[in-house]
């Protein structure tokens, strides 16, 4: 019975590790961002699971319930996760904007291809590193 109560946490760990695996093993940048999202939602379940009280209800006071002794779930993790969801989307938007810029310059969203382009550029330009993202195309070539 003790281990049944921990089932939620184990699923959380599996989901987080699935996201982690996508982030380090897949070369596609958009896939990495989706993996980051999986990792984040895993942590959301963890927090909300900790705040759940058996037989409790959502922490909203209703007049008809106040006469009885009602048990409420912990509202604090809910608040923290509300903030985390919104911040998570902001980070994701930022990451996707960077990916679009990388695609415009490198014509690729695969990490290994971008590395190969950089390596070739490095060999051709006597060790000058990095393709300029800001300079006009004619100036850097």
């Amino acid at each position: 019975m003790k281990y049944l109560a921990l089932y939620n946490y184990w699923i959380v760990v599996i989901i987080m590790m699935a996201g982690f695996y996508i982030m380090i093993a897949r070369h596609n940048l958009v896939k990495k961002i989706i993996g980051l999202g999986l990792f984040q939602t895993g942590i959301f379940y963890f927090y909300v699971s900790l705040g759940k009280v058996d037989g409790g209800t959502a922490p909203i006071f209703v007049e008809s319930l106040e006469a009885q002794a009602t048990v409420y779930s912990n509202p604090l993790p809910h608040v923290l996760i509300l903030t985390a969801i919104v911040v998570g989307v902001a980070t994701m938007a930022m990451g996707l904007a960077l990916i679009v810029r990388i695609y415009e310059k490198y014509d690729s969203i695969e990490e290994d291809e971008i590395k190969a382009i950089e390596r070739q550029h490095w060999q051709e330009n006597n060790g000058e590193f990095g393709i300029s993202l800001t300079a006009p195309p004619t100036a850097s070539s």
């Binding site: 961002i33 989706i34 705040g51 779930s73 809910h78 989307v89 994701m92």
Partner: peptide
Amino acid sequence: MDAVDVAFTEAAVGAGVSTIFLLGALTL
């Protein structure tokens, strides 16, 4: 899990807005 406010936000922001952002990135 009794977290109705989190559920609202996750459905609107997680399933709605972030899917739109990802689709936009795929289009570009």
